[in-house]
Design a protein around this nucleic acid. Structure first.
Lengths: 254, 254
DNA sequence: CGCGAAAATTTGTCTAGACATCTAAACTAA
DNA sequence: TTAGTTTAGATGTCTAGACAAATTTTCGCG
């Protein structure tokens, strides 16, 4: 069952490191492994050979391999788990923004495990911005759903999504039961929705956002504001998100 | 004059690491050193003891100290220079934006060494944005001065600054001779100038900018566009800068 | 067959030492 | 005095080995 039993060897051979060109061995090893990951030889989620096997393959000490892996883990290319092994963890998550933007679908397409945690769901009065986006008047009742989203166990997104409390009575409780917002909307009669507009800026995060995203406060977050509308073009939800910029690239498809 | 000449010993003693509490020695060492930096025992810019001395102090192998230092360097707390030593590196540079914004003054006030490198100085036709800012017409001749600025030897800023070639004839040559833009403007008869407006956004850097700032392309840069005017309120220069967001926080004073 | 203990596997930490590379200070010769 | 060279000091890299800790697999027992 092991791939090494089949035609191709598990470890691509034909790698010769130069010990006299002034470039550290561990850097050369890192380059080789990063190139192989980029080429898809080790697909995302795949288990890499063990440190011992890699050391054998490159004909170096295990510690030299570890130095290379450490650099790659720091860059977010790998996930190293004690006792289990080393797993490819594609660095940049391309979060595609299209007309049909769905968080979970979007990431599953890139073979990411997704998870979410609701911070709170509550009713409040619409702010000017929210009211304008949803076509309400300032102070009208809206449901605010605050959430942290994870990909591969790493927090990548903190968001608040607003719904009209008048248009979707009871969505407050539905949201608390559902895993995804798409699902909650379907239960409230929204068969389908599309993204009408998305604005992207960036700024330094609040302390709370930085904590949720587990990143320092002096590293910017990407901030998006998006408006979703139903099939008739009526506004459904307005969402404001902060993204961990180290891990996410917002990509607009046209 | 050195603080170490006074009461306290250079290396704070009385540190005992536990080898049986399950916490890695290097983590304990990192905690101790981070605490000492936070307490100001090692002030910003100060040279730390050598790896060998630290290893002696904590009674561990040099490699164990290196592991701790590596973690701190990654966090941006230190700057390790081969052959020279280890230096405390205050993480965040607060770049204050006020009416009287001067790059060098600004950083000197924080005890930063500053340096600059001109990439090129050339005449070109004003783009729409530049023309609008400087009150010119698109295509009017402007001098573009591209520069990389350093603080404490680290690149923190890539900028292009535009001047009207009509208003400041010969500034092209003056700029090539001067170290600072403030100085060049004075030589061209601008006794004083003030910042009229600054816009700040953030985005991912171009390859060239990332190279200059020595940062990965997937880490955002802060982008500022600023307009300086003279005492009569006439536009003097328009500048577009990309800042290494890891090291700089733009602060608006009001 | 199921379950728990033991063994094997795999990564984590620490030590020890050798040599390379870079920097700054000391020295030497013009 | 100056310029170039040598030397000492400091960090960078690599190897080697021993355990520790976490996980998975194997195996034996009921």
């Amino acid at each position: 069952m092991n791939p090494s039993d089949l035609s191709a060897p598990t470890s691509p051979a034909g790698v010769d490191l130069s010990r006299e060109n002034g470039v550290a061995l561990w850097k050369q090893i890192q380059q080789v492994l990063e190139a192989e990951i980029a080429q898809g030889i080790w697909p995302p989620g795949e288990k890499l050979p063990t440190e011992f096997q890699l050391a054998e393959r490159f004909d170096v000490n295990r510690h030299t391999v570890r130095r290379a892996l450490s650099g790659m883990e720091e860059k977010g290319l790998l996930r190293v788990e004690q006792g289990r092994g080393i797993f490819v963890h594609e660095h940049v998550i391309d979060y595609m923004v299209t007309k049909r933007t769905r968080f979970t679908e979007n990431l599953r397409r890139q073979n990411r495990s997704t998870d979410g945690k609701f911070l709170f769901v509550e009713m409040e009065g619409a702010s000017e911005k929210v009211a304008k986006a949803l076509g309400l008047r300032e102070g009208d009742p809206v449901i605010c759903c605050a959430k942290v989203s994870y990909a591969d166990g790493r927090p990548i997104n903190v968001s608040e999504t607003y719904f009209s409390a008048v248009r979707f009575p009871g969505i407050e409780d539905v949201l608390r039961e559902c895993e995804s917002i798409t699902e909650a909307l379907q239960r409230c009669g929204v068969r389908d929705y599309t993204r009408k507009s998305t604005r992207v800026i960036a700024r330094l995060p609040s302390q709370a956002d930085a904590d949720h995203l587990r990143q320092p406060r002096n590293r910017p977050v990407l901030v998006t504001e998006g408006l979703d509308v139903d099939e008739q073009g009526r506004p459904v939800s307005f969402g404001a998100s902060r993204w961990a910029s180290d891990w996410v690239q917002i990509v607009f498809e046209s």
